[in-house]
Design a protein around this nucleic acid. Structure first.
Lengths: 227, 227
DNA sequence: CTTGAACTGTCTCCACCGGACACTGTTTCG
DNA sequence: CGAAACAGTGTCCGGTGGAGACAGTTCAAG
């Protein structure tokens, strides 16, 4: 099956006009994922929202996996443009833009795990990030590694902050910290380090993203200045 | 439903002796996930491996989600002990131990996304990590944020390195870089930064984990020394 | 203008999934 | 010796992704 992500194959000319488009299907699927979560995206549901039969979708996309790939790349979109900046600020913007993308489509956190096909938009994101580091004297591998580290930080915080409604089991509190404090309250002696850390946390806001990013950027600065 | 993760409820004494144990079920499920991936873990499959009926499992675990939680916490296990060390070395060991865990059970990368119940082992991991930072003068929140950043780095590299056989679609090469070079070879002008970075990468080994960790630790050192 | 090939969308069917529920058989306590 | 509590099974359900046959539509070639 040809990879729909990279330009559709030339449309045939015989036969009836297609009533749908890959783009329309993808948009419908994204709309479902945005409102009801990625698990709610099924072939039936997508087809129903378009007033078609499930099997009709298979004329356009190869299957569920391919549809998810298309959704992912489209929802990711292209990274926003920024005026030229020093590498540190550029990377910070890049990270915040990425976080904003996850905030818009939290299901991206789920659809981008496991081996998957890379779409053009995803690659463009990486390209932008690498270019921000082009002038720093870092090697290509170092640039990519640095980018991965930053992307990982964004993912981590996004994952722990956004965490879709699709809860799995047990603890149904609003966020991780509340569930955590609850457990720690009952058995403080078992996790002394955590208990102490949580006590001195009380009320401090979610600065996790900025904190981690600044540590990483500090570390990069050390490396870059060292030459 | 009582959380099986935190000590089973007292077993009843009436009625026939249970033929299975929660531990046995969990171990069987982990074995399946280790060999055939997390998707292969179904109630039927687990029950069949134990020579029981699917529905019999529901006498022990509340459902699929709870089983996965049990698998996750058990597979994570307790973090290994290390002799007392300076915080930097302690965190480095912590990160490498965590990575080793992901390498042993790559499906943990999948089972630990989305909101989920926290098990005692997972909390112990966090406790160990936080304790490594206890003497650094960082606040509790900063300690937790630092840990999240490091864990995120480990996850990112593990995810991009291990990536189970359960591929989804398209590109079935051995790792991301090979698929990437393939794409870049066909359209180098579209991703100039990436192309340049990949060219100067040729043959360098997977140092991504060490690189990112050292940047993060460098950044933490800057913050800690600053006081 | 006709005809046949190419194409679209629908229909039926399948295996599998997680799970509800009623039921039989077993064990132990009053 | 019951009766209550419990274990495991069998049956059923709605849902999933997907294969394949089929009829309707459209266009290009004769």
């Amino acid at each position: 099956m040809i990879n729909l992500l990279w330009g559709d194959p030339p449309p045939p000319t015989r036969g009836p006009k297609p009533a749908m488009t890959v783009e329309g299907i993808t948009k419908a699927a994204i709309a479902i994922a945005d409102t009801d979560g990625l698990d709610a995206v099924s072939m039936q549901r997508v087809a129903a929202d378009l007033s078609f039969t499930k099997m009709a979708l298979y004329r356009y996309v190869g299957g569920k996996a391919e549809l998810v790939s298309l959704m992912t790349d489209r929802a990711m979109g292209l990274p926003p443009h920024h005026p030229p900046q020093p590498w540190r600020q550029a990377l910070m913007d890049w990270a915040l833009d990425l976080y904003a993308g996850f905030a818009r489509h939290p299901w991206l956190l789920l659809s981008t795990v496991g081996r998957r096909a890379l779409g053009p938009n995803e690659l463009t994101w990486m390209d932008f990030g690498v270019r921000a580091l082009a002038e720093t004297g870092l090697s290509g591998g170092q640039q990519l590694d640095a980018l991965m580290t930053i992307a990982g930080q964004v993912r981590t915080i996004a994952h722990q902050t956004l965490t879709l409604p699709g809860g799995t089991i047990g603890i149904s509190e609003e966020n991780i910290t509340s569930a955590l404090t609850e457990i720690l309250a009952t058995q403080p002696d078992r996790f002394p380090g955590l208990t102490a850390a949580m006590q001195s946390l009380a009320g401090s806001e979610n600065q996790g993203l900025d904190f981690g990013l600044n540590r990483i950027l500090d570390g990069l600065e050390v490396l870059i200045k060292r030459g």
